[in-house]
Simulated assay, not measured.
Amino acid sequence: MTMSVYNADVAARLSTAIQRYEAGLLSLAEVQSALQSAIPLFENDGSGVADSVRSAEADLERIQFTLLLDEQRPTAIFRLDELRATFRSAGGGA
């Protein structure tokens, strides 16, 4: 199902946070916090985007606390790329 316009806007803001993380402007904890803060903002539009963000946020927490520091960034970026692909497939652009 396609994301609502409101959810697409929230997803776009998260995509910006992800880009800032990739550029080294945000830490892993900061991008995880952005995901966590966005979860309650999503409307129940049937797209499942909130569940995808919740899953990605949990994965980032696992990455942060279980992987060696030099492994965290590439693993987190790979996971965040998957989240952006979910946004695109749900019609959120990003």
Rank of each mutant, 00 (worst) to 15 (best):
M1R: 14
S4C: 02
S4V: 05
S4E: 07
S4R: 08
V5H: 15
Y6C: 09
Y6A: 10
N7F: 01
N7K: 06
N7S: 06
A8F: 01
V10S: 12
V10L: 04
V10H: 00
A11L: 01
A12R: 15
A12H: 09
A12K: 13
R13V: 13
R13I: 02
R13H: 13
L14M: 11
L14P: 07
L14T: 14
S15P: 08
S15D: 08
T16V: 01
A17V: 06
I18H: 06
I18T: 14
R20H: 11
Y21F: 15
Y21E: 04
E22M: 02
A23H: 14
G24L: 12
G24M: 14
L25W: 07
S27H: 14
S27F: 10
L28C: 15
A29T: 14
A29P: 08
E30D: 15
Q32A: 02
Q32M: 03
Q32K: 15
S33F: 13
A34M: 01
A34R: 13
L35K: 08
L35E: 12
Q36Y: 11
Q36L: 02
S37P: 03
S37H: 12
A38G: 05
A38V: 03
P40D: 10
L41M: 13
L41T: 12
L41Y: 11
L41P: 01
F42M: 00
E43N: 09
N44E: 14
N44Q: 07
N44P: 11
G46A: 09
S47E: 05
G48C: 07
G48E: 00
V49L: 00
A50W: 07
D51E: 13
S52W: 01
S52Q: 13
S52I: 01
V53W: 01
R54L: 03
R54I: 00
R54Q: 11
S55E: 09
S55L: 12
A56H: 06
E57A: 10
A58Q: 12
D59A: 06
L60Q: 11
E61N: 05
E61A: 10
I63E: 08
T66H: 08
L67V: 09
L69A: 11
L69P: 12
D70V: 04
D70N: 10
D70L: 14
D70R: 11
D70Q: 13
E71F: 07
E71R: 14
E71D: 12
R73I: 06
P74Q: 09
T75Y: 04
T75M: 06
A76F: 09
F78C: 02
R79D: 01
R79S: 08
R79E: 02
L80T: 00
D81R: 15
D81S: 15
D81A: 01
R84W: 05
R84A: 06
R84H: 04
A85N: 02
A85F: 05
A85G: 03
T86G: 07
F87W: 13
F87P: 14
R88Q: 15
S89R: 15
A90Y: 06
A90F: 04
G91E: 10
G92C: 04
G92A: 03
G92S: 01
G93R: 05
A94Q: 01
